[in-house]
Amino acid sequence: MAVLVVTLPGPLVSLDEAKAHLRVTSDDENDSIEGYIAAACAWIDGPWGWLGRCIGKHVLEVRSNVFGGFSRLPLGPVQAIVSVQYVAADGVERTLDPAEYVLDDDAMDRAPGFAWPLLRGDPNGVRVRYEAGFVEVPKPVKQAVLLLVGQWFSVREAVNVGNIVTEPPFAVRALLGPYRIIRV
């Protein structure tokens, strides 16, 4: 199931937090620091991030040809379902009334007493838009972002000393490990 990003989150740490971590007091490096923050957040967070989940507040959309395809909405924690749209059997696009479904532990299911509507059968005829990410960015994740920003700020060029590094630094992995989702 493909996940579409409708809205990206803001940065996981602020420029002021990063500057305090780096002990930078002038504004001369702001653009570089903001770039490092954006790179660290993109590397960690969201559909393409190392964690395999959303940390910052994303608005995402998944599509399916059936309602049952959403037993678990990907990249949670899911905070809310924004909308559920579908192509009905008569070919008309409709929005499902929120009273007809429930969100339970990152899964969308029918509300008691309701049945899913009949569908025309379009390949992406059911679209669920939802908010995913933590209400507040966990402190270990913020610290990992700051460590990456600090590393990139102090070593501004690619370094190769005879080996290829494919893993993040140990401290970053240790901080992020509890939040990582590994698909099997």
Rank of each mutant, 00 (worst) to 15 (best):
V24Y: 01
G35K: 03
C54V: 13
G56Q: 14
E17M: 10
G52E: 13
V24R: 03
D31V: 08
H21F: 11
N30T: 06
G52A: 15
V59L: 10
S26C: 02
L15C: 12
A39D: 14
K19H: 07
I44S: 02
I55P: 09
S32C: 04
G46D: 12
C41Q: 10
A38K: 04
T25V: 00
H58A: 11
E17F: 13
S32A: 12
A38P: 00
A42R: 13
V59Y: 08
D45A: 04
A39E: 13
G56R: 14
C41N: 09
V59M: 08
A39G: 11
G49R: 14
T25S: 00
L22Q: 04
I55M: 07
C54A: 12
G46Y: 08
R23G: 05
E61V: 15
A18K: 09
E29L: 10
W48N: 15
K57Y: 12
E34Q: 11
A38D: 05
R23H: 04
D31F: 07
G35E: 06
V24W: 00
R63Q: 12
E34S: 09
N30P: 02
S32M: 04
K19C: 05
N30L: 05
C54Y: 13
I37K: 00
D31C: 06
H21E: 10
E34G: 09
A20L: 05
D16T: 11
L60W: 15
D16S: 10
D45G: 03
W50Q: 11
E61C: 14
E17G: 08
G49C: 14
D45E: 02
L15E: 12
A20I: 05
E61W: 13
R23W: 03
S26R: 02
T25M: 00
E61P: 07
E17V: 13
H58D: 11
D16G: 12
L51V: 04
W48L: 15
L22P: 03
Y36V: 01
P47N: 08
I37V: 01
